[in-house]
Design a protein around this nucleic acid. Sequence first.
DNA 1: CTCCCTGCAAACTATTTGCACCGTC
DNA 2: GACGGTGCAAATAGTTTGCAGGGAG
Lengths: 136, 136
Amino acid sequence: MVDALRQGQYRITPQRLAILKVLAESKGHPSVESIFEQVKPNFPTTSLATIYKNVAVLKELGQVLELGFSDGSNRYDGKKPWDHPHVVCTVCKKILDPDIAALEDMTQELARVTGFTITRHRLDFFGICPDCQNKK
Amino acid sequence: MVDALRQGQYRITPQRLAILKVLAESKGHPSVESIFEQVKPNFPTTSLATIYKNVAVLKELGQVLELGFSDGSNRYDGKKPWDHPHVVCTVCKKILDPDIAALEDMTQELARVTGFTITRHRLDFFGICPDCQNKK
DNA sequence: CTCCCTGCAAACTATTTGCACCGTC
DNA sequence: GACGGTGCAAATAGTTTGCAGGGAG
């Protein structure tokens, strides 16, 4: 990930490393705000603008995947920066990355039915996770 | 659709009728701006705020489906106001509503693998439509 | 006649930009 | 030492809200 930056002619600054670290290590799908919160302890002067700028750079390099939701929230995925389905718990906001065999079938069926050449996709399923179902 | 408004204790104003008409008749998936443009000729004093307010009402009543995209654009669907997949042409911005048999399989596979109770989904595929492929 | 609705403008929020200083290379 | 990056504050864009007057019921 650091190599990707170097090869892109970008400088390695401490702030950048800190942002990378959050994206690479967090199990979940952090928001800009949440990255900000995690970087601030180490670099108290860091501003939100810096997070935005660097996330944009990483997005450009294909190192993170941006997930914009209709409620205005933006989440980022530094673990699997390519198109993949998401399952979102509408109660606790947890996001899972399931492996779905039927996806390939579906894409091919789509191409056949519509005549489109499919290049990207964005699949989100919403529901209630096992944990939240039990808490009822 | 008008009945839905009436039963929801909402008043039938000319502006509302005009907005309904655009949503019900347009083949595509109009944006707020595009609804605005189509309503303006009949009601030149109409403001964007009115469109937003009424679209929100219709969304609440389940009469339209809101499609927010990550590029900030919002489109609305008054023809099929329920969850269904979309195929978006990245060249001409056309949106299709394909019928996909594999969707049901996929949802069941998801529920089985993750333990989630799936309640809603949002599936968008991006690619190039036949028309735009030929224009190359 | 009562309210809800409209339309204007102002408020809001998330993101982006301009610019002076700083630190990497 | 040059120049890209940072951090602050101000600008921006899309959407929402407050309020006064108007029209539906």
